[in-house]
Design a protein around this nucleic acid. Structure first.
Lengths: 189, 189
DNA sequence: GACATTCCGAACCGATCGGTCCAGAGTATC
DNA sequence: GATACTCTGGACCGATCGGTTCGGAATGTC
């Protein structure tokens, strides 16, 4: 019947995701996406429609493969202080061990939030949704600890988490220190 | 002798600063800088050299007129808990009262930090320097409170402050809430 | 071999970018 | 009025951008 597909969709989208992640949506050019995916411009256009559409695929990939695995343990029923500590120590280990290039990527969604002028309402909602997702996860866990100030603590923790990802773009070592501090802080609760 | 200068340097740089602030360095075009400053492309080029040089001037303006006035009270000898609370309640008031356009600007330096690929080492150091400036101010104040965990608290507070500015770009109302929460948190120390 | 499909390279489009240059008008001093 | 400086508008540059199209080679099924 026909020639078989020669490239893997997941591999290509993941490669594109990493470029968007490192460089942001606007500054990423089609040429860089071509180089990263190994696909020609024609193939990219035919397969994904447009740069913007490819970014949507990349963001979905990011949520599925990066965010959800990290946040998953916090969502589990019965998750409490230990899971929260493990969350931050996990990030500390990541910022300590990961190659500089990787550690400096920060958060794909937060990075593009600063690009916001170039993006559209859909992208803005994506970023806001991510922030609320993190907040709700923290709030649920803090709720189980029975603290009266759970709501406030969750707000501050969410902000710290955002600050953590931004800091990692400037200084991965400082981000590792910060993640450690956050884990220690949670221990004192 | 000669014709007198017809525009005010401070006014022009401040106008350019606001454009960079709202849109980021990369996405800001010369046309937008011309519109904001009221200067022609020729005048901009002759006076400031290049877009990049103008950004440096804008960043200096930002530090002098925006950052230092806010952080000043924290630097004053004898500054303590009250000044810290006032700092965050001041931000809360700003995010509550300021027009949406203004409240959503976030922090000029943090915004450009996400643009980092487009920028150079000088810009990266500018942003890192800003972060350390905030951290040192917090650390000094927390030191006077005689807490054993002053260093850790300052790290977390710095991250929260960064998260606060990023949040303001997504949702000024949430930023106001967060600033309030931070002030309340400091009160409990 | 006929056929369907995948994939690529290259040419091309219109637009925008930052930057350069210059002729000339405006405005001050002497 | 001569002179010196400011400032503008517009033409222009080379480069890059995302996107579009097409011819043709490659690779599979039947």
């Amino acid at each position: 019947m026909a020639r078989t597909k020669e490239f893997d969709d997941l591999t290509a989208v993941t490669a594109a995701r990493d470029v968007f992640w490192e460089r942001g949506y606007g500054p990423t050019s089609l040429a860089q996406l071509m180089a990263a995916t190994g696909l020609s411009k024609s193939s990219l256009y035919e397969t994904y429609g447009s740069k913007r559409d490819l970014f949507t695929r990349a963001a979905e990939n990011y949520l599925d493969l990066i965010i959800n695995p990290r946040l998953g343990p916090l969502d589990a029923p019965g998750a409490g202080r230990d899971e929260l500590i493990a969350y931050f120590t996990g990030l500390e280990a990541f910022f300590t061990k990961a190659p500089d290039r990787i550690a400096r990527r920060g958060c794909l969604l937060l990075n593009t939030a600063m690009d916001l002028n170039d993006l559209d309402d859909e992208a803005a909602m994506l970023v806001s949704g991510y922030r609320e997702r993190v907040f709700e996860a923290f709030r649920a866990v803090l709720g189980t600890l029975g603290r009266a100030d759970a709501e406030r603590r969750a707000q501050i923790l969410t902000a710290s988490q955002i600050g953590l990802m931004v800091t990692s773009r400037l200084d991965p070592a400082a981000a590792a220190q910060l993640a450690h501090a956050l884990a220690e802080d949670v221990r004192t609760w």
